[in-house]
Nucleic acid binder design. Structure first.
Length: 546
RNA sequence: GGCCCGUUGGUGAAGUGGUUGAACACACAUGCCUUUCACGCAUGCAUUCAUGGGUUCAAAUCCCGUACGGGUCACCA
């Protein structure tokens, strides 16, 4: 077979040869240790937890090594294409604050970063393979392939296009010419040179040494529509874009023999591979991959709706990446993800169960460590979008809101009652007069019959002084209630219940319920300080009228 | 069915032949602190590392079999 003739027959209008592109995309000038990684999704919808995890891993390693992280869109399957697919991915990544250095829209020296725009590049490489006798056209129809599969099933042979079943290998140049004249549709296949019985050792960054069979499948390189398959696009793109580390789901592990063979036939050094285990979920006794369709915690919109901070998600993902990160994060006060040294070897080999509870715990810690100002800035976009009326309330007096957010935040043991942005409204609404006086939707604690309104009112009118320090305030409060048969401490009361009407706790409860509509609030002293005496009395006033 | 990978508590896991009484964190339980709640603190929670066998003075750690779980076998990625 005259390979040159075959190649020109198939690609009479080839624009450039392979070497043209190799010169155009030279080796990157980076540190030896710098990693070039990528996130390569198909534009088939929104980003979910699984793909975020994969992109996060790539992003972290590239940035830690002062390398490059880029985005490449794998849109070679036109059937699966979704409207605005690319825009959705880019805007999701932006929302999650995973910034890429090169990619569609922002460009870069190694573009185009959308596979459908790289058609002629793939053609140049296929042309090269044909010249070397490593690829050939095959004209089987879907039906014929289906029949082949049935035959192999019957014969109990491995299924696929290989060895003696690869009939396209035997076609003569004349046969091919005839097919082309008939305008028969065809694909370009790899002429595999491996033997399935031969095993070779492959070293994965995460999984370690793995024994794999060498590839003998004549897989499709270029589909009928002229676009490449994943396998071929991966090899060409990651070579030309000079990727050093391919991070992808471990469902690709079994395709590694194909990919390594392609790199070898092209005479090119393959990248390192890191196959990550999927995030899983336990349903009863069954464990399965976290699914976009069935699990709410898989789609990013769930986190956006709940107001779970992006940073909290990342901290959680980082603990899945290397568990030791968790120790580092919890025991260091400013703790930045990029400052931690992640290693491949510490990544889990099997699938990790996705634990929303733990994520929320980390979120609580994260939010407790923010300054009130920073927290305020973080919640603004959330409420502007999800709850405009609360947004208006908190922005009407920003200083007041920041004071509210600052309650019990500055001490050694800051409060940890916010796990989501939504929790903020849940725990602070009663501090705003608009909600206190009007909003009947908010859950209000019941006023019990034994509550003594006049005792509380009298206390605020005559005893309470905003100027008091916390110690003085508390001392005065206890002195006051003692006069009305309330015990100074709970212990005292428990020692001698018959002697008292109640104890400090009971009195504080009345204040809570009357003034804050709730049985659970942070330190009353701080809340009262923010409220001021005038507003306190105004609030108590409404109960008299009832 | 062939091939590949995995299996340490409810969860994430540390640990690759001998100070491991199997770390640490989440969850759970109890108690302390406390004006409630959220924290914080203390204690408890795997006599044992899926299972059977082997190697060894010694195994969660090495070898073989079994079971279970996951992945893959497309002109999808």
């Amino acid at each position: 077979m005259d390979n040159q003739k075959l190649a020109t027959l198939l690609f009479p209008h080839l624009k450039h040869t392979r070497s043209y592109y190799e010169e155009m995309y030279p080796k990157r000038e980076l540190d030896e240790k710098a990693m070039v990684t990528r996130f390569a999704p198909s534009p088939t919808g929104f980003i979910h937890m699984g793909s975020l995890y994969a992109s996060f891993v790539s992003y972290v390693y590239a940035h830690q090594s002062k390398g490059i992280f880029y985005l490449r869109i794998e849109d070679t399957d036109q059937k699966r294409e979704v409207e605005n697919g690319i825009e959705n991915i880019i805007s999701d990544l932006k929302k999650e604050d995973i910034l890429f250095d090169e990619g569609p829209t922002i460009g870069g020296k190694y573009g185009p970063y959308i596979q459908s725009e790289r058609k002629e590049i793939y053609e140049a490489f296929v042309y090269d393979l044909i010249l070397k006798g490593y690829a050939y056209p095959a004209f089987e129809s879907k039906k014929e392939l289906e029949q082949l599969r049935k035959l192999q099933e019957k014969e109990k042979k491995r299924i696929g296009y290989y060895g003696k079943y690869a009939k396209g290998r035997d076609l003569s140049l004349e046969d091919i010419q005839k097919h082309l004249e008939n305008k028969d549709s065809y694909v370009i296949r790899l002429k595999a040179n491996g033997n399935f019985e031969d095993k070779f050792e492959f070293k994965d960054c995460i999984k370690g040494k793995i024994l794999l069979p060498s590839n003998d499948m004549d897989i499709v390189l270029l589909k009928q529509d002229g676009l490449p398959t994943y396998h071929f696009a991966h090899v060409v793109d990651d070579y030309l874009m000079r990727t050093t580390h391919v991070v992808r789901g471990d469902e690709w592990l079994s395709s590694v023999p194909v990919h390594l063979q392609l790199f070898r036939l092209l005479g090119v050094k393959p990248p390192k591979y890191a196959h990550i285990a999927p995030l899983t979920k336990k349903i009863g006794e069954h464990v399965r991959k976290l699914s976009k369709r069935y699990d709410k915690e898989c789609s990013m919109s769930f986190y956006q709706e709940e107001g779970i901070p992006t940073n909290a998600i990342k901290i959680y993902l980082a603990t899945l990446l290397n568990t030791s990160f968790e120790d580092y994060y919890l025991s260091n006060q400013p703790a930045s993800i990029l400052d931690f040294n992640f290693t491949w070897k510490k990544m889990s080999v099997g699938g990790s169960l996705f634990d929303l509870t733990k994520l929320l715990f980390l979120s609580r810690t994260y939010m407790s460590r923010l300054t009130a100002e920073a927290l305020y800035q973080e919640i603004l976009p959330f409420y502007r979008e999800k709850d405009p009326s609360f947004y208006q309330t908190i922005t009407a007096d920003a200083i007041d809101t920041i004071r509210i957010l600052n309650v019990e935040r500055t001490g050694k043991k800051p409060r940890k009652d916010f796990a989501t942005y939504q929790d903020i409204k849940k725990h602070t609404w009663y501090m705003y007069d608009t909600y206190y006086f009007e909003d009947k939707q908010m859950p209000r604690a019941l006023i019990k019959e034994e509550y003594d309104l006049s005792l509380v009112t009298c206390y605020f009118k005559e005893i309470y002084d905003v100027q008091d320090t916390k110690e003085v305030w508390y001392e005065k409060l206890k002195e006051y209630i003692e006069k009305y048969q309330y015990a100074r401490t709970v212990k005292e009361y428990l020692h001698n219940p018959g002697k008292y009407k109640g104890h400090v706790g009971d009195f504080c409860e009345m204040i809570r319920v009357f003034l804050f509509c709730s049985l659970e609030t942070p330190d009353i002293y701080e809340l009262l300080q923010i409220l001021t005496k005038a507003r306190i009395l105004k609030r108590l006033d409404i109960y008299k009228k009832i």
